[in-house]
């Protein structure tokens, strides 16, 4: 299971990459593997605001639809339209396949996210 050390993680299997006051968010290798073939991604509109823990996107495998939760609070500044056309990228390159970029409203929230090591432990327990 691939868990890059330079990212932060949520307990709901999202990754967060901090870039100044912004962060890009996607789902982890563990998540894409558990979901199986991803055939649909529903993204929010740019400008939408989400609190930490709120569902902001939906990924659908052949079998089922799953919510994607925002690990941090903020306003969506960019969405990855490429995933709408090619949802399978989430399977083949989960850490390259960012869903959205968020302008962080509370950078302090970062501290409550999991490190790669902590997230790795969580995956093993599941």
């Amino acid at each position: 299971m691939n868990i890059p050390v330079d990212l932060k993680y949520s307990r709901e299997h999202e990754w967060v990459r901090a870039e100044g006051g912004r962060a890009s968010i996607g789902i982890t290798d563990h998540a894409q593997h558990a979901l199986g073939d991803i055939v649909f991604v529903e993204l929010p509109e740019p400008g939408a605001e989400f609190g930490a823990g709120e569902a902001f996107a939906v990924v659908e495998s052949v079998k089922a639809a799953s919510d994607v939760y925002s690990p941090v609070s903020g306003k969506i500044t960019e969405v990855n339209e490429q995933l709408a056309a090619s949802p399978e990228l989430v399977n083949s390159d989960p850490y390259g396949s960012w869903f959205v970029v968020v302008e962080l409203s509370d950078p302090g929230e970062f501290d409550s996210l999991l490190s790669a090591e902590e997230y790795g432990k969580l995956c093993k327990e599941e």
Partner: peptide, 8 residues
């Protein structure tokens, strides 16, 4: 088994 290599 729900799948082996993948549903697709």
């Amino acid at each position: 088994p729900v799948q082996y290599s993948g549903i697709l």
